[in-house]
Design a protein around this nucleic acid. Sequence first.
DNA 1: AGATGTGAAATTCTTCACAGCG
DNA 2: CGCTGTGAAGAATTTCACATCT
Lengths: 213, 213
Amino acid sequence: MAESPRSIARLSLYRRLPAELQAEDPEADSVYSHELARRAGVSPAQVRRDIMALGYSGTPNTGYQVEALTASIAAHIDPATPQQLALVGVGNLGTALLQYFRGRQSKLHMAATFDTDPEKVGRTIAGCRCHPVSAIGEVVPAEGITVGIITVPAPHAQETADRLVQAGVGGLLNFAPLHLRVPDQVYVEHMDIAIRLETVAFFALRGRQSPRG
Amino acid sequence: MAESPRSIARLSLYRRLPAELQAEDPEADSVYSHELARRAGVSPAQVRRDIMALGYSGTPNTGYQVEALTASIAAHIDPATPQQLALVGVGNLGTALLQYFRGRQSKLHMAATFDTDPEKVGRTIAGCRCHPVSAIGEVVPAEGITVGIITVPAPHAQETADRLVQAGVGGLLNFAPLHLRVPDQVYVEHMDIAIRLETVAFFALRGRQSPRG
DNA sequence: AGATGTGAAATTCTTCACAGCG
DNA sequence: CGCTGTGAAGAATTTCACATCT
């Protein structure tokens, strides 16, 4: 089973490569591991192993059928039914993310946003109703929300996470610059921009090759 | 030498933990590996090994002196002289990032922004002058910029990266949802929000424990 | 020939466990 | 004692290399 976060992230990446491919060559209905590898920035062996884990097989000398491959990836990583998201903290970054995902067709649906600012509460921002943070406990279960996106200032991030977890979400995407403490069964991805920027700056001066994917 | 991207990222994280710590207990001038570990979400052994690589040593039974530790981390990961950054793509996300880093004191300085929109070019956004993208080749060397942040739409991300690399940057922080192809000596961090969100959504339904970091 | 699928090797990263110090 | 520093073990991940298929 390729069920590590790394492999899931790579599969998610592979999935959108056929679109790139077909933008260049609309005829193409199959693709080699080394072509996917080149576009994904990983090794061909890595691609083959990830795809192997899907249970899908390509054909030697021909590669992978893009349609079948895409379907296999979707079957593996997409939820059976659409999954609901919530975003907490409708500031600059939160709004940018809402715009970013606005209209993106996907199995992930932005169901609600939350903020403490009375100016924002009650309004609809980027097509999404803004609730007061105090309503998390009510709205999250009511909407069946399973994932929370945290874009509040650092001092409020942990309490926001606590509320979301308490309300039942199973995963968090955290943009606040601190490590969230959550129960073991809750999955967190930390999008720590400051840390990543410092890491880039470090290696920018030292000429090290980038890591995977 | 703990010079992997992972270890650099962790050091960057450890560095801001003393501030958290001292906010709770202003008296504290030393800290144990297990305390740092708890706050960073890693194991105590990992903390000790990362710090070992700095050349700094704590004292048994007392832990690490926060001031000396912070200084050691800074000496290891900060540039000797301030490093200049550029951001390309002053849209919602780009502006949010500019605001986010506005006023943050650091060895990293936002020296220029670039956009193609004539409405934005020439203006000062979040305290930073906006140049036309066509000026990258001129401004980047002139300002000594070493890191580029890419927040342009996906279709323009690769050409943006090419321009920045051509102009001499050594590292890129990419927010566009695709893998950038750059020469080996250029370091890239991919902040692929869509992929990370899909990964969270996947594990939110499966209750897997988060990875470290 | 030139792909894929995959056991096995290699590599990288993390944890264990304990000596030694304060 | 309870901590740090660290060699060695262990896990996780990636790559190799080649049998196999078209």
